[in-house]
Design a binder for these strands. Structure first.
Lengths: 187, 187
DNA sequence: CATTTATCACAAATTTATTGTGACAATTGT
DNA sequence: ACAATTGTCACAATAAATTTGTGATAAATG
């Protein structure tokens, strides 16, 4: 069966075997265990990760040390701090594994190389980026217009798996409520 | 009471208040939680850490994925991969926290600066380095001449606290025996 | 001012990690 | 070749850490 990354990319653009091999040659594969981070504050994100298996979160710690989760990442998702990655600037966020995970990553330099040599992949990432932008916009809207109960229900509807996989306190940190409030939303 | 790092340094050289403040200004303080790493394979160790509180280990993973522990680090110890730090080359080792820890670190650049401006500190680190070398040599000798039971007893005698603080499987990875064998050394 | 939420405290439940031990194969030194 | 030591696998008991729900109360929100 085809490489999972190929399946993923071919949802947007199609590739020959040679093209995919060429793409893949720009990636490295690594394993990370639960709790291990792949990016921390003040580092420059020079890698973009694609999740083969496992689960990660990208989060921000406020001055009180409280964690706010920007994004969860699961199988077939991309994750990095795009602010830091694109601008090659210091990151404010922290990305770590919620489960043992297998990851593919492409460095900033390799992505530049690849997109310059292969216009198709430029298009792929451009499209990805558009979708990502829409998702972010929707998240902002949801934070503005929906109550925490509504946000909870929307998330549950959209990603029911997440609730079986990750502790509720992390869901709470994603929804922007305390874990106690989240717990009481059930009743 | 004086800063713990000052107490530590003054065991070897003496410092005025101004001198110590100057030294300290080259360090940064950070907190790390259990499981978090401060160095991983293929990174360049550009920081040397001094442990205020907590416990860390520096280890190497062999081809079978088995962990071999080079060194534990506790309060008032220094830790980094000196091979990588001194030569500013890619590290082969992994350093992570066994407990939540508070650390001071000095970057390679700052250490260069500090030692060039303050000869005393050059002497301090030179002496530290000598002691470290002796400790390493003794460890090698012990691995060569002592049985695992003897190495176990020597470690227990020298660092009894370690056995209360860290899981036996890590002691085993330090002694170079399987955790089962270590367990049976008790009887 | 009513409602919602955060915070603190606590205990129960659940999950992970640690530890010892038996059985047996592999390795080592003599 | 043989005895002793150790590694590996499997399993169960224990211990430790994490997760979860809930009450009480204060703070904030609209």
């Amino acid at each position: 069966m085809p490489h999972p990354l190929r399946q993923h990319i071919e949802k947007i653009i199609s590739l020959t075997d040679e093209e995919f091999d060429f793409v893949l040659s720009h990636f490295e594969q690594i394993k990370k265990r639960k709790h291990q981070h792949i990016l921390q504050k003040d580092e420059i994100a020079n890698k973009e990760y694609w999740i083969i298996s496992g689960c990660l979160k990208s989060s921000f710690f406020d001055n009180d040390g409280k964690e706010h989760i920007l994004q969860f990442g699961m199988e077939n998702w991309w994750i990095t701090d795009y602010d830091s990655f694109i601008n090659q600037s210091k990151s404010k966020i922290y990305i770590d594994c919620i489960e043992d995970s297998e990851l593919l990553y492409i460095t900033y330099e390799n992505r530049e190389k690849l997109t310059s040599k292969m216009h198709k992949m430029e298009r792929f990432w451009a499209k990805k980026s558009k979708y990502g932008r829409i998702a972010l916009q929707n998240r902002i809207l949801s934070l503005l217009k929906n109550s925490s109960k509504e946000r909870y229900e929307l998330l549950l509807e959209q990603y029911p798996k997440l609730f079986q996989r990750v502790p509720k306190k992390l869901i709470a940190a994603y929804l922007g409520v305390s874990r106690e409030t989240l717990s009481r939303l059930n009743s």
